[in-house]
C-alpha cells in the first residue's frame, strides 16, 4: 500500500519535500493521476503508510497545506 499527500502545485510539493527530507522521512514527488483529483493534473508526495503520521506532523509544523491523503 502507498500513501500520497496531494499538494496544490509542484512548487508546494517541493517545499514539502524539503521539509520531509530534513525530517529524514523517505518520500518521492509523484504526479497524481487526474482521475483522482477534481481539477486535473496535480503533484503529490508518496510515502510508505508507516511514515504518514510523521509526515503530516512535519508538514503541519512547517505550515504547508496539503489535501486529504490518497491511499492506493
Amino acid at each position: 500500500m502507498r500513501c500520497i499527500l496531494p499538494f496544490i502545485s509542484m512548487t508546494t510539493a517541493q517545499r514539502g519535500s524539503g521539509v520531509l527530507t530534513k525530517s529524514n522521512i523517505p518520500h518521492k514527488i509523484v504526479e497524481i493521476e487526474s482521475n483522482l483529483t477534481r481539477r486535473g493534473c496535480a503533484y503529490g508526495i508518496e510515502i510508505a503508510p508507516l511514515y504518514a503520521d510523521a509526515a503530516e506532523r512535519a508538514l503541519k509544523r512547517a505550515r504547508i497545506r496539503y489535501g486529504d491523503i490518497i491511499s492506493l
Partner: peptide, 13 residues
C-alpha cells in the same frame, strides 16, 4: 500550468 488542468481558467494559486 502543469497543475489543475481541467478548469477553463488559470489556477488561483
Amino acid at each position: 500550468s502543469g497543475s489543475e488542468s481541467i478548469p477553463l481558467v488559470m489556477p488561483e494559486h
